[in-house]
Amino acid sequence: MLKRKNKRKLEKYDLFANILVILFAVLSVFPLYWLITSSFKTSASVVKMPPDWFPETFHIQNYIDVFNNQPALKWAMNSFTVAFTTTVVLIMVSSLAAYGFSKLQFKGKNIIFIIFISSLMVPKEVMIVPLFRVVQDLGMVNSIHGMIWPNVATAFGVFLLKGFFDNIPDSLRESARIDGAGELRTFFKIMLPIVKPGIGALFILNFVEIWNDYLWQLVIGQTEDSKTLMVGVATLMQDLNPNFAYKMAGATVAAIPMLVIFIFFQRYFTRGIIIGADKG
């Protein structure tokens, strides 16, 4: 009898927990739902009270106007180029550095790593003026190069991936050395495939961060052709007589690539988070 009572209590707790999780999931998804549905409404319908929870008629013209009246396609290509290139280069650099700090032995390794990680405590806004001067002296203002390379110089990827490399037994590396594999071959053929969950998690986190990096992209991209989608969509908000549905369509266009990236890398992201939690 006692076991049955305990089982019933657990079932009640599980039911309550599931209802709570579903409720928070709905609340989390609702802003995205409202954004997408509002992009198909008229401007008057967006601000209508009480609101229309679902569009009475779908106005595709909002999306047509975004691409016809603004160089939205150019902005989207700039954003994707900056986010994708930065993330790929960052993963290459961070994985090599993380492997070195985790598996190689050299003088002052711990001190260098501490100094390296300490840079994470410095906000990017503090460095934005001297960083802009450096980029300006290098002639990379109004260029996607000025948006890419400063964002590669961050220690977050090294910090994240080092934990995954630390979890790999040293015996694998020693076995590869015995079989005649060099350091680079050991890294690319053995170590890198094992840390794919961490790379997937880093890809999503960094891609979303760079895609949403409004301030730095606003400072560097000052011409119409060098703007990214986030900066370009923000300029739509400056009208004195705003068309809210038009702006919602622009914001939806900016959000779609992040959703696609997350869907494709969700499996690696989830595994990376789970492995990181197990190690912690």
Rank of each mutant, 00 (worst) to 15 (best):
F156I: 09
S95M: 12
G163W: 00
I91F: 01
M191C: 12
I148E: 06
I111A: 15
G100D: 13
L138V: 09
I190W: 03
V88A: 15
N151A: 15
I199P: 00
A72S: 12
G182M: 15
Q70N: 11
L138F: 11
T86Q: 08
M140K: 06
G157S: 10
A72K: 03
N151Q: 12
F132G: 02
I114F: 15
A76R: 01
F80P: 02
A176G: 11
L131D: 07
T86A: 05
I190C: 07
F80K: 00
M147V: 10
K103F: 10
S175W: 07
V126I: 14
L73W: 15
L104M: 14
L96K: 02
F113H: 04
R133C: 05
N142C: 01
V152D: 10
P123M: 03
L96N: 03
E183A: 09
I117K: 06
K109Q: 13
I114C: 02
M121V: 07
V88D: 02
N78W: 03
E125H: 01
D137R: 09
I168L: 10
P123C: 05
A153P: 04
T81S: 15
P123S: 08
I194T: 10
S119I: 06
A83S: 15
W75K: 07
Q136V: 00
L138Q: 12
P197M: 10
P193A: 05
T85P: 04
Q136G: 07
M121K: 06
V82E: 09
S119E: 01
G146C: 08
M77P: 01
I190A: 12
S119K: 00
F67E: 09
R133H: 11
V135W: 02
R173W: 10
G157C: 09
L161P: 03
I178V: 14
A98Q: 07
V158R: 00
D170V: 00
V82K: 05
P123Y: 02
